[in-house]
Design a protein around this nucleic acid. Structure first.
Lengths: 213, 213, 213, 213
DNA sequence: TATGAATGAGACTTCATTCAT
DNA sequence: AATGAATGAAGTCTCATTCAT
């Protein structure tokens, strides 16, 4: 080793190690395709392009690896910046948000971990709970805050904004999400999503638009 | 098979053999409690009160046994007779149906097979699709038929009744179903279900009640 | 199946199942040859002539299998009937017992589990303790009882018979046991054992033979 | 090796390299605590305060490292200077030696390598043999030499001094060593050791003290 | 020389499935 | 038809060893 060239890159198993991200990437694909039990550590190692032993250098066991992925996805999805600018009018805001939300849920690649996490929630309650809180509840709260900002005599008349937010998000799924997760239909087209979200928006505003006296 | 040479006592593969039903009963509990991968044939045999070998007399393998259960549950749940008597008024009908539907989905025991089937749908697409068609789509269609019967100038103004049916069913889940399946909250109380379904009903009718001209 | 010939031999995994004994036999050899850690379940299965899975039908895990062998050996060795008939004179009794005892300890095949158990005692203290109590302590107590029966003014003058019994057993090992267990010498010949035990007997009696006043 | 071309700073394989001693020190503790199989190279590296790779710079593999430790311990323990000054009288000498010997064997920390080596002797016969020869046999010989020096008409009457030496060492263990190694009793107290060694000394002298004619 | 990340063989164990009875 | 003992492939995880830096 030549003096002065000493390598400062002692890559360790820290949170952002490239190997760690490589493993998470490979494992995510396998977990999402096959489910927690269906995914084998052998297959994960192959998919990640590392040896089986290396998996265990970065993650204590299969559960921890899975949790790390869900956690990461939580953070990732929690960062999805839906446009809840209070300056925008409710109709546009809801229509844009609804489209983005359903597209996230029904991504063709099945990239969303929602199904996989739901499947394992009974055996790994903490994972399920944290996913709900970090991803779904957070989005509900953001939408609820937006709605609250528009509660006014000449705007929206909502008593329970969090319930209303949840109602909008659910009604957007109508005819789209369940056929998709049960593999009874392919991922919906952007056009169909648009129609359904528009219908949901109309229903929502019909219920919550403040009546002019 | 030549008539007269078959032993009438050996009707094993008969759809309604008592042993078969015994196995299905035991297996259902185990599959729904532990999921497809979590359920072992050992545990299933114990739960059904038969020997492990007997399972294979009636079902070719674990997949077929699981499929048979989902199929049976489909038929069973498809038979659940929600009261869609056209003579009843929409508000009462929707409120009663919504309550019954959510209670089915959020049964504390997790008795509903919806989560288990959703979990396996990616690996067993046919099972998922048939479950959706036999259970969920059938209910949507029944509700849609009921709504269609009430489309009238002085009753409901609905363009796409199947979408509307699906919308009502989704909006009933708001704030209840996702926290439950993700184990972020215990099964909701009957009272809370009542409030949420009432809110859903109001929203639905606000959107679809025919406007008096 | 012909009536009247119903087979009562539903061989179950009870204590004396022949498969169980077959497994114990094969496992004993491997454990004693290679030690607890050195023995693999694969090798044990091969040695026992059963499949790996069968091992787990009869024993919950490797530890339990090992414990069962040690327990069985304890019972077996605890049954070794040294002749402690009080009617026999001490000199003969001690010489016969000493020979039998050393031959047991230094069996050429290494059949004795003493070394293997000693090795694992630190990690499996219960196994070690039970082995000591069932095998070694039991023999000490029997010899002590015999000695006690001979405590008399014209026979033996012993204060602490259990210590004396232990002393005799230890002194019999002199120059024989340690070279054997450390593989520094082959199993001693019967002739050499005779000489050493005779010397031990003389020493013991020199110390404990009642002095004629 | 050509004189002048070897780098004097690279004396890695040197028997007394400080790193080498550091490794041996850390490894000794781990091996003696956990046994050969129980000790992992990871744990050894941590205990020694070096990297895992460094272990392999100094020792070809785990076996060689273990052998080096046993060898070192052999030499170390072989150096333990029991006081065999021929000028001292046998009774005191034996009592002092016996106490020191048993305390070494029954050290609470299990520091003695005797158990660890005994455990592995069947799989690594050379290690066992060398340990016996360097440690146990050497001590026997020293004691035998001392005894030989006291063979005299008015002192000791011993025919086979090596046997006698071994006999004394064994009889000192009575009631103490086996319960300790089998974890059936905690390490004996100094007081109890004193009693047992005194009894052993009396027995020894009763057998071998020259009879006054 | 010293490091520690990476490897992959092999350990223990589970479990769907088969088969002699 | 019914049993349950037996199987062996495949699962998760460990660890001695290697190698690029």
């Amino acid at each position: 080793m030549v003096a002065g060239t000493s390598n400062p890159l002692h890559v360790v198993a820290d949170e952002d190690s490239s190997k760690r991200r490589q493993i998470l990437g490979g494992a995510r694909k396998v977990f999402m395709d096959l489910g927690f039990d269906g995914a084998s550590m052998n297959e994960i190692a192959r998919s990640a392009g590392v040896s089986k032993g290396t998996l265990y250098v970065y993650f204590a066991d299969k559960n921890r690896l899975f949790e790390a992925i869900v956690e990461e996805d939580s953070i990732e999805q929690g960062k999805v910046a839906f446009n809840f600018d209070p300056a925008r009018d409710p109709e546009t805001t809801l229509r844009d948000f609804g489209r983005a939300y359903i597209m996230l849920l029904c991504r063709p690649g099945g990239g969303s971990s929602i199904r996989t996490v739901m499947a394992i929630a009974e055996r790994m309650p903490d994972v399920g709970r944290r996913f709900y809180e970090n991803v779904l509840e957070k989005t509900i709260n953001r939408l609820a805050d937006y709605l609250q900002a528009h509660v006014a005599p000449d705007d929206l008349a909502i008593d329970d904004c969090r319930l209303a937010a949840s109602q909008f998000m659910e009604v957007c799924k109508a005819s789209l999400f369940l056929p998709f997760v049960f593999q009874a239909a392919p991922a919906p087209s952007a056009e169909r999503i648009g129609e359904v979200v528009d219908s949901a928006t109309r229903m929502f505003l019909a219920a919550y638009r403040a009546k002019v006296v």
